[in-house]
């Protein structure tokens, strides 16, 4: 009885370790990403960037609708790193290190990447 329980627990753990990274790699959800981008307490991206559908965008950072035309699927990793910590590319950047300083979770950053990459697929 007791042994069965332990085996079940072990199986559950193995399941977690096997499938969690897979789930993370599967990437984000664009709709959730839009929420993160547009929410003031989360990404608040419109404070500095032009993003779709947000009025009175800031002009500190590049226009993301325009900038994304230069990004495609192959830039996914770089895009993610830029959001995670732009200092890697530009040491004196004003952009907050969303990943390093835990402003957003790993999942939220994946969602944002997914949302940004979706700009180019829109007709």
């Amino acid at each position: 009885m007791r042994k069965g329980k332990i085996t079940a627990l072990g199986l559950a753990l193995a399941f977690l370790f096997l499938f969690l990274p897979a789930a993370a790699l599967a990437g984000g959800n664009a709709a959730d990403g839009k929420k993160v981008v547009d929410t003031k307490k989360l990404g608040n991206c419109a404070a500095c960037h032009v993003v779709p559908g947000m009025e009175f965008p800031g002009d500190v950072g590049p226009n993301l609708v325009e900038a994304m035309k230069n990004y495609s699927e192959k830039d996914r990793t770089m895009l993610r790193e830029r959001i995670f910590d732009e200092r890697k590319f530009n040491p004196d950047t004003i952009m907050p290190p969303f990943g390093t300083n835990k402003i957003l979770t790993s999942q939220q950053i994946d969602d944002v990447v997914e949302y940004l990459l979706s700009f180019n697929n829109k007709k």
Partner: peptide, 24 residues
Amino acid sequence: GQLNMSCAICHVKYAGHMIRANLL
């Protein structure tokens, strides 16, 4: 701060820019 900003980066380097509807 968590956003890793200095006073100077907003009010010297990016002074005159907009953050949403506010002028730096």
